[in-house]
Simulated assay, not measured.
Amino acid sequence: MRFILYLILLTPPSIAALAQHPDSEIRQLLAVQTSTWNQGNIEGFMQTYWQSDSLLFVGSHGPTYGWQATLDRYKKSYPDTAAMGKLDFKILEIRPLAKELYFVVGKWHLQRSAGDMQGAYTLLIKKIKGQWKIIADHSS
């Protein structure tokens, strides 16, 4: 019995199990965010977020609840492409919390003519109706 347990523990994961790991899909979601932001497209950037009143964004001014309120906050904080600058993300960790719920930790950097900005972020990303969406974002 103990021998079988060792075999199970030492056997590499199946190809099917590896293909189901959402790491690349989550990285692609953040690549879409970077691309749309760098095009000056806040609405496109926001498509990666859960379109729900339950979306939570926490920034330097405290929590914002809801997709529309978060979009409005971004538009107020970044009224034009000069204010938006060029965004870059560095993903530090992608950790599963449940089958379709992941915790992501990283750093962000905005290169802007008005002065660069940078900080850290934590995201909760959940698969909703077959698509990965950010359901909570804490950026500081």
Rank of each mutant, 00 (worst) to 15 (best):
residue 134 I to F: 01
residue 20 Q to L: 12
residue 37 W to I: 02
residue 139 S to I: 13
residue 106 G to Q: 11
residue 17 A to G: 01
residue 22 P to C: 04
residue 50 W to Q: 03
residue 59 G to Q: 11
residue 122 T to H: 12
residue 2 R to C: 00
residue 18 L to I: 07
residue 94 I to Q: 06
residue 138 H to M: 08
residue 84 M to L: 10
residue 125 I to C: 07
residue 101 L to Q: 10
residue 57 F to G: 02
residue 22 P to G: 04
residue 91 I to L: 10
residue 111 Q to G: 03
residue 19 A to K: 15
residue 111 Q to N: 11
residue 73 R to A: 09
residue 38 N to A: 09
residue 120 A to K: 15
residue 93 E to R: 15
residue 41 N to K: 06
residue 60 S to D: 07
residue 114 A to E: 13
residue 79 P to D: 04
residue 11 T to L: 15
residue 47 Q to A: 12
residue 9 L to H: 11
residue 16 A to C: 05
residue 130 G to T: 05
residue 127 K to C: 04
residue 82 A to Y: 09
residue 13 P to D: 04
residue 129 K to M: 05
residue 65 Y to T: 04
residue 120 A to C: 05
residue 136 A to E: 07
residue 129 K to P: 00
residue 95 R to P: 00
residue 15 I to S: 10
residue 101 L to Y: 05
residue 89 F to Y: 15
residue 95 R to W: 07
residue 73 R to I: 00
residue 50 W to R: 02
residue 132 W to N: 01
residue 77 S to K: 13
residue 140 S to T: 15
residue 65 Y to S: 05
residue 140 S to F: 07
residue 18 L to H: 08
residue 131 Q to M: 10
residue 7 L to N: 09
residue 51 Q to C: 02
residue 97 L to M: 14
residue 134 I to T: 03
residue 133 K to D: 00
residue 45 F to G: 00
residue 20 Q to D: 11
residue 46 M to I: 02
residue 85 G to V: 12
residue 43 E to K: 15
residue 115 G to M: 09
residue 127 K to D: 02
